[in-house]
Amino acid sequence: MKADILIAGVGGQGQILASRLIGAAAILEGYTVRTGETIGMSQRGGSVVSHVRIGGESKSATIPFGQADLMIGFELCETVRNIKRLSENGRLIVNTQRINPVTVSLGMDEYDTNAMEDALKKTTSNLIMLDGYSLAHQAGSFKAVNVVLLGAAVGAGYLPLSRDSFIKAIEEIMPQRFHNLNYAAFDSGHDLAGRIIAKNTE
């Protein structure tokens, strides 16, 4: 199995932890993994992108344009910003949460939600949009939005790694006091995406 997964969002949303969880789950299933991301300046509310490459022979962690099998967008605008890396009709999970950059609040730039959603719909039909922020909040913390989205990717059948591997990866990587919260977050995304896919194929 070979899968290139791109995660795009805003610094502070837990993308890097998400990429580590995918990496740990993939290693548990016996795959080689490469990940790459921009940390540093970008963390402070800037755009953050993580590349995760499972299996395959590539020597570099960066996924070339048009080659990501799956993209997990943690924020709408950042998803659109990086959509050029998604493969033709690739799989896309999008958290509909909108995080306004300061440039928008100051009136320097515009955030056109409808145009962005339309652009994503035109790019791929393998698209699931969900409100990860609310699901995370219901699971116990808005911070768990990253794990909600991973759950959604697995539940939709977009990420070919098992739920069990992710449960083990959470155990391995995260402090114990956060385990139950994150199991709940994973399952809420998993179940919702599963239902959406089932409905779409009806």
Partner: peptide
Amino acid sequence: DINEPAIPPLPSRPPVLC
């Protein structure tokens, strides 16, 4: 041949003080 999807203008998101 890179087929880039058409995307609408996006707001810039520079890093900021928290």
